[in-house]
């Protein structure tokens, strides 16, 4: 099997997604800054004084929101990517994974693009760059793999039951509050705290925020957790997708 044509397909599609995303809007890419920015303003105004144990809550909330922001948009895109491209999938022999990978590549580029203005904002809140922030590169890559696996699973289901996309849309806010993004995990009563760790996103957000905002390298256990979750999700997701793929065509 040759990968050359697939790679060029992924590249051309990802480029298209990035180009088209804000093509007809006046503010363009600033729209994607607005959403996390508003979330940040809400939390820094309302809860700015609520967590005396967190030394710099604004920075804490901002870096959490920045990391969180990758997940909901990317999953929604992955869930919808096959129905959205149904005419293509019905008329050209393109592997469905090409669309998922293109969506992932464009999401990742987008993430790093908005990282630039956000680091400026973080700097204004007293953040100074430190070496452990580099952990973000492999960290986000692992988070992307985890998201891809989940997206393949939910996306394959969504081909048959379009309820999945709608359901996921309503679940995302709940997931946001269930993940320690804008509050420290210590806030949760000790006897309930272990429940937090059933949420795979906590395994990514906490160590990566530590690396980005607090200058702490993730521990070896944290790396292991992220790698296991990323590979496990990818494996399960692609297995599920492969089993269902042959029935897609009648539902697209």
């Amino acid at each position: 099997m040759q990968y050359g044509p697939h790679l060029i397909q992924i590249w051309r599609l990802a480029r298209k997604y990035l180009l088209v995303r804000y093509k007809n809007s006046v503010l363009g890419i600033f729209w994607s800054l607005l959403n996390p920015l508003i979330l940040f303003l809400i939390f820094s105004f309302i809860f700015g004084q609520a967590f005396p144990n967190v030394p710099n809550y604004r920075l804490f909330a901002l870096s959490g929101i920045l990391l969180w922001n990758f997940f909901p948009g990317t999953t929604l895109q992955l869930i919808q990517v096959w129905p959205d491209n149904a005419p293509l999938l019905r008329s050209y022999p393109i592997h469905p994974l090409v669309f998922s990978l293109a969506a992932l590549v464009s999401s990742l580029s987008h993430f790093f693009l908005i990282l630039i203005p956000f680091t400026l904002l973080m700097a204004s809140l007293g953040w100074s760059p430190a070496l452990p922030a580099l952990a973000l590169l492999p960290g986000i890559f692992l988070l992307a793999l985890f998201t891809l696996g989940l997206g393949l699973f939910l996306g394959a289901l969504n081909v048959f039951f379009r309820d999945v996309a709608l359901l996921w849309n309503t679940l995302i806010p709940a997931l946001f509050y269930f993940t320690p993004v804008v509050y420290p995990p210590e806030l949760v009563p000790a006897h309930l705290r272990s429940v937090l760790w059933f949420n795979p996103l906590a395994w990514f957000i906490l160590p990566l925020r530590g690396a980005l905002a607090e200058g702490q390298w993730p521990t070896q256990d944290q790396w292991t957790g992220m790698v296991v979750l990323a590979l496990g999700s990818c494996f399960a997701g692609s297995l599920f997708f492969t089993r269902l793929r042959r029935y897609f065509i009648a539902f697209l």
Partner: peptide
Amino acid sequence: APVLSLGAGLEPEL
């Protein structure tokens, strides 16, 4: 070369 539907896959914005 498949010619199953002319126009599928064209991106209107580009």
